[in-house]
Design a protein around this nucleic acid. Structure first.
Lengths: 189, 189
DNA sequence: TATCGGTGATACTGATCGGTATCATCGTCA
DNA sequence: TGACGATGATACCGATCAGTATCACCGATA
């Protein structure tokens, strides 16, 4: 019996991610994470020294996911920075339309991590900075005017759309984001 | 002794607002709210039947603040919808640059209120819808092309800028938001 | 002066929190 | 077969949570 398809650590991380995203960091106790992962609190503490470390591992996993996303987009549109930006826009549009979406996990976590010196905060801030830099680099390589300004405008649109989609209707906001991205990427000279 | 300038209920509401915004809904206990308000937990429960009700009152107060802000902007730029939109943009820019800013209180609270049927959620969603409608109405009266689309683009920029300002540098994001607003409001036909 | 509603202070409840200790069990590898 | 590391289960710890009960007090009003 008890034949699980993945080791306890993976199950715990998966369960924690699901619950943290759906209910917030402080809205979920370690006991429930362990239960959803079909294991016990003790197993959790054998793999993670504290709840904070578990949160950090989860956030780091999300950052890794974005790294992979960028690699994938890059490989799907090699040497085509404008198409890569369009692909990133399309991905964000997809996030907005997803009915289970509760916005960006990193942004939501930021709301529950008021202490700027908290290690998890640094993971989030570093990711956002890196994300903007990657967009800016693509804008520059795409020959867009004012690459720094355009990248920031795109980034703001991505963040805002994911927030707005929660209260203003997903399809509507997604459509608007598409238009914003198209307009920014169509600018030349 | 004990000469307070305001009645306990006001002090409690003020303290709750400060703490809720700075540390999150779940990050603050009623006991601490009472202490900061220079009163006791009992006094709190004499004026609010539960913590949830206190949260609701706080959020409702914020919504009222926005109502007042709109009235003020309207009175400062009567019959000038485009200037009113610029004023709203300037106000949001100010929020981004404020060093104590932790983004939009309603958006942050949304992250901690996963249950869509929670009464506080409805306050937030209703406000965001109303906010968009007001912007849209101004866009229409200002004669901007595609008023619905422009309003949504502005709203997304407002939300995104307040989020992005926390990780990407306040001045930088504020400047970018200013440019986005100017560009949207400069469009004609 | 007597009264009475609002207030402050303290102590309490039951539940849940993060984190720990203990022990039985199971699979693997020698 | 024997041993060992990883796991599961349960019970526990002190702290904190939301919410309640009790009582002393103070200021206004009659």
């Amino acid at each position: 019996m008890s034949s699980h398809t993945s080791p306890p650590r993976d199950r715990i991380l998966a369960a924690a991610g699901e619950l943290f995203y759906r209910e917030g960091l402080r809205g979920v106790g370690v006991e429930r994470i362990a239960a959803v992962a079909e294991t016990t609190k003790m197993a959790l503490y054998r793999h993670f020294s504290s709840k904070d470390e578990l949160i950090g591992e989860w956030l780091s996993g999300i950052v890794r996911y974005y790294d992979d996303l960028w690699k994938q987009i890059e490989s799907e549109h090699p040497d085509d920075p404008k198409m890569q930006l369009h692909a990133l826009g399309a991905w964000t549009v997809g996030r907005c339309t997803s009915p289970e979406s509760r916005g960006c996990a990193l942004v939501n976590s930021l709301a529950e991590l008021p202490d700027p010196s908290h290690p998890a905060r640094k993971i989030i801030d570093a990711h956002k900075v890196a994300q903007l830099q990657r967009v800016e680099k693509l804008c520059r390589r795409a020959g867009l005017p004012d690459p720094a300004g355009t990248a920031l405008a795109l980034h703001i649109a991505f963040e805002g759309a994911q927030v707005a989609a929660q209260s203003l209707g997903r399809e509507r906001v997604a459509k608007s984001l598409r238009k914003i991205v198209d307009a920014q990427l169509a600018r030349s000279e």
